[in-house]
């Protein structure tokens, strides 16, 4: 029994932490200052852009009727809120996006598992997958509306159509790149195909899932907005189309900004989920 250098390492590491050398302190200070500096610049850019936008619109350098302006956006938000429709619109769009996102990820993973399970099925379905993957799914929008009816269901199906195939291919590819030797290891213990799936494939594909989730967050918003453009009577996509049609650019800008915030929040949610899981796994 020999190598306990691991343990020694961690001991000396701790010793370092208690007595931080001046050089290290300096280094940490520099890193922190740089971080603060970056944040300040970011904030500055944001404020300057808003301010410029506002000033240019006020001075009629740009036409606020076409470009809108921050103060009008704020007013529009307040008006929507007072009318009691703000959260209704945000809510329905977010709901559609989340349902489409979850369905796309779950169904996509299930289909990928099926294709991995049966190599024969995978070979048979390959050309169909290629066609479906290449096809711009938005072209199917009118079909969904006729089949399903103009409502949230059609929008969710649209979202699903956009994210499903990508998920299938991403996850399946993840499965196929897993080290065959790891699978062999399970087999040496007499493991069944199902055990290979649960003991190796699914846990090892964890980074793939996170990746698929990140891609799907973006795609599901595309699906939802396209869906709402086509059919809806409510939601942010509806507000954008409606605002465009009646030339209320304030409404359009406001909706786009809210959309940006909502999509970012959802993406950050996935990032947060990833961090939570990683914390438990290393």
């Amino acid at each position: 029994m020999s190598m306990f250098n691991m343990k020694k390492d961690s001991v000396s590491y701790r010793a370092q932490l208690s007595g931080i050398s001046p050089e290290h302190k300096d280094y940490l200070h520099r890193v922190r200052m740089e971080k603060i500096f970056v944040r300040v610049i970011q904030l500055l850019i944001f404020c300057t852009a808003l301010l410029l936008w506002e000033i240019c619109a006020n001075a009629k350098i740009v036409d606020p009727f076409i470009t809108s302006q921050p103060s009008r956006v704020l007013k529009t938000v307040i008006r929507l809120y007072v009318d009691g429709v703000l959260f209704q619109h945000i809510g329905i769009t977010c709901l559609e996006a989340i349902v489409g996102f979850v369905l796309g990820t779950v169904l996509g993973t299930l289909i990928a598992i099926m294709l991995w399970w049966s190599e024969f099925l995978c070979k048979v379905l390959e050309p169909y997958l290629v066609v479906l993957n290449s096809l711009p799914k938005i072209a199917l929008g009118p079909v969904f509306i006729v089949w399903i009816g103009a409502g949230p269901a059609a929008i969710i199906v649209m979202t699903l159509a956009i994210s499903l195939i990508v998920t299938v291919l991403e996850v399946l590819n993840g499965f196929l790149t897993i080290d065959q030797e790891k699978i062999k290891l399970v087999q040496t213990f007499g493991g069944t195909k199902f055990q290979v799936l649960t003991k190796v494939l699914l846990p090892a594909s964890y980074p793939t899932f996170i990746n698929a989730l990140k891609i799907n967050v973006g795609l599901s918003w595309v699906g939802v907005i396209v869906g709402e453009f086509l059919v809806s009577k409510a939601g942010l996509g509806y507000l954008i189309v409606y605002g465009g049609q009646v030339f209320k650019l304030d409404l359009v800008m406001t909706s786009v900004i809210i959309l940006g915030v909502a999509a970012t929040v959802m993406y950050q949610g996935v990032v947060y989920l990833e961090k939570m899981l990683v914390k438990n796994k290393t």
């Binding site: 080290d179 030797e181 790891k182 062999k184 290891l185 040496t188 003991k199 190796v200 846990p203 090892a204 964890y206 796994k281 290393t282």
Partner: peptide, 14 residues
């Protein structure tokens, strides 16, 4: 039979 492969193949999620 116990089979040991070339790499340890410890699962890093366990």
């Amino acid at each position: 039979i116990g089979y040991m492969l070339q790499k340890d193949h410890l699962f890093n999620w366990r």
